[in-house]
């Protein structure tokens, strides 16, 4: 059974590209467009990893991360934050709140796939 990745992002084109990349890497992908929707999805079907944007409508990425880390049942969910370049404070805050890693926008697609694989313990495919 493939491992699952929840993409939490409000920008449709970024969702599109992340979704494509994760599927290509062999993961099953779920999508949430805002913080509230993300938490509902985590509750109904906890993913193995979350790609979590910080700037989200309604409930921001930090709030989502706090809720995830506050629930003992969700401690195994890996969380990679999507932060904006030049916002070091966001990265530090995210790591403080329990994120496993972060990727800075505009990110490299290879880098993000590599990180997800690394956190999910998946061997890189050889070309």
């Amino acid at each position: 059974m493939p491992q699952t990745v929840l993409v939490v992002e409000d920008e449709p084109h970024i969702v599109d590209s992340l979704s494509f990349l994760m599927k290509r890497a062999g993961f099953e992908v779920f999508i949430a467009r805002d913080g509230d929707a993300a938490l509902r999805m985590v509750e109904s079907c906890p993913p193995d990893l979350m790609l979590l944007d910080i700037m989200l409508p309604r409930r921001d990425g930090f709030d989502v991360l706090k809720s995830v880390r506050a629930n003992a049942a969700w401690q195994d969910i890996r969380v990679i934050l999507l932060t904006a370049k030049g916002r070091d404070v966001d990265r530090l805050k995210g790591m403080e709140l329990g994120a496993d890693d972060f990727v800075t926008k505009p990110f490299s697609t290879k880098e993000i796939v590599r990180l997800v694989r690394q956190h999910l313990g998946v061997e890189e495919k050889t070309a």
Binding site: E11, H13, I14, S17, L18, L21, A84, K85, K105, P106, F107, S108, T109
Partner: peptide, 9 residues
């Protein structure tokens, strides 16, 4: 940044 991210991806 959002647009650059989409373009680069």
């Amino acid at each position: 940044l959002t647009q650059l991210t989409s373009i680069r991806s």
